[in-house]
Write a protein that binds this DNA or RNA. Sequence first.
DNA 1: AGTCTGGTGGCAATCGATTGCCACAGATGG
DNA 2: CCATCTGTGGCAATCGATTGCCACCAGACT
Lengths: 349, 349
Amino acid sequence: MARDAAARGPTIRDVAALAGVHPSTASRALDASLPGRIAEPTASRVRAAAHALGYVPDPAARSLRTRRSGLVGVVIPDLTNPVLAPIVQGVEETLRAAGFGCLLADTDNDPAREEAAIADLEARRCEGLVIATARRRSAAVERLAKSGPAAVLVTRGLDTGALPLVAADDAQGVAAAVRHLAALGHRHLAHLTGPRDLSTTVRRARAVRESAKALKSSGVDVVVRHGAGFTIADGHRLARALLSAHPEVTAIVAGNDMIALGCLDAMAEAGLRCPGDVSLVGHNDMPFVDRLEPALTTVAIPQRALGVRAAEVLLGRLAGETVAAEPLVLPTELVVRRSTAPPPAARRS
Amino acid sequence: MARDAAARGPTIRDVAALAGVHPSTASRALDASLPGRIAEPTASRVRAAAHALGYVPDPAARSLRTRRSGLVGVVIPDLTNPVLAPIVQGVEETLRAAGFGCLLADTDNDPAREEAAIADLEARRCEGLVIATARRRSAAVERLAKSGPAAVLVTRGLDTGALPLVAADDAQGVAAAVRHLAALGHRHLAHLTGPRDLSTTVRRARAVRESAKALKSSGVDVVVRHGAGFTIADGHRLARALLSAHPEVTAIVAGNDMIALGCLDAMAEAGLRCPGDVSLVGHNDMPFVDRLEPALTTVAIPQRALGVRAAEVLLGRLAGETVAAEPLVLPTELVVRRSTAPPPAARRS
DNA sequence: AGTCTGGTGGCAATCGATTGCCACAGATGG
DNA sequence: CCATCTGTGGCAATCGATTGCCACCAGACT
């Protein structure tokens, strides 16, 4: 009974017949990019016929002929990371408004799955790719600069800069975080972050180092530690090790909010209070971190705007525009909440 | 320079030529569902040729001929609702493993956009639809029971039951919540929830009422209030009104975790402590509610499993199986954390 | 009056894979 | 020795929309 899926809809031939014209005329009449190609009386007759029949062009047939699929692939590392939701939303909304469909692929942070996902999306003839999973050097992603569909990276860029990147101005945000902590009186900072093969990691780590160096005359120093990933568990491990190895540290700048969450766990475990004993700054301002205990001070990135801009850059490329080689950098902002405070007086060195 | 996208890949004709066979033979040799149709030596020659050329069949051409697109549409109300992320992940992973691509559509909780999204997904010839946005009576969704691609609903069902539904056993979870509160000593409960046109809302509300009624002999009563949506703001409004109109209420069962968050805001505003003054139970156990202050007691639903099962049911339908008319109900579990406690003695009636 | 031009619309090829039907060869059996 | 059968592969139609090219017509200009 559920076999009647073969009920095919009307074709352009049906429309043409009803309107009393040739199929090619019907096709042109319905093509909005050809204004005036078909005389108005004829065109409106065709439109009326199409409407009467409920005609919807077959995308497969159209795609076969035009070599365009109307599809864009969106490759993300982990949908359950709340920071990605607004980004994907921005991408989807912008692309949909432009008539593209979004094929979603979650790689679970696995390079092998990323490569498979890109291959699959290519096989499906996506016209463009929005990639949020890129590692600094990734053969699969780099190849897209040479062949394959147009690709735009969000947040995570390539060392070679071979593909357009839309990212937040992490450096500025992180520098603000370091200055904020220094101004509160902290002198021994730590930066706990993710793996070195992600551009976000190195950008943020470099910014932490540089802004600490700029404050060296005030006695500020920083220890940087890299973990295997950007997860709560990674943050937990990193912070546990740090707190025992470097008891002098009174403030942590986390590589992202997930790591910050892990830091909170480690502090609780060690009997340290935040911000009483150790201050903490996150990164990304993902949803709900303002409702944590303590509400997290963090570097806010324009999540939705990142998605929107990435989609816009992609649309530009698809329209033939040449994109700037420089990454498109969107402003960040340090959001000060309750997880940062002056260091405990007793510890002050 | 970015204009060489016309570089078409090899076609089955090229493969056939290289293997020295007819294209139709090549097609059959590459079709895994036709074992033995082509003699093994020939078939392996074709496979070698395909591999050597890096042949990838053109989905448009295949789709045109076979009337199958390999696409499934996923319609969700709001990607930034964390409860959806694991569901979508489960759907995507299961569908991908079965060879389908996921076209994502976010409706922003807007029925008009839902209808548009469904129409678009149909126009793109999706073979199936996973819909998480259904209202109890929705012409656009109901029509899918009669025509259009196979559809499966997640979480939110239709009154008519015309489409298969995969949902959590809310009734059981909510009943456990009510019993938990009653056991703690609460007598005046409230249920603050979403709009009546969502099946989840009525399921949960009914379960609250019924389990309260079962405890009526113990003096338990409940007031139920419906809001416009399932957002934090809705919860906030609802709770503010409730707390002033019903000061006797000492425990709130929220329709979902977002509403619970809003309740927390309203309590803070009213100078009430949770759980000191008012206890609170959420629903869904979305990510991070265990890290709130206070950690939220909530009804956990098997989020990822819901997505997986929904995808499996859809795959079954696509394979021609007849699906049960009864909704597929997955077990829930009350997760007791810190937002529930005995009522303040002073208030006890 | 003849030719040119611009505006419309039709014709047919084309995109690439699939599949119903047919043909041929070799094997089997009567 | 012929008829039938089975296994293998080829032929050509087909899916539906698009588009390069051509044809026709009316009006305009010389």
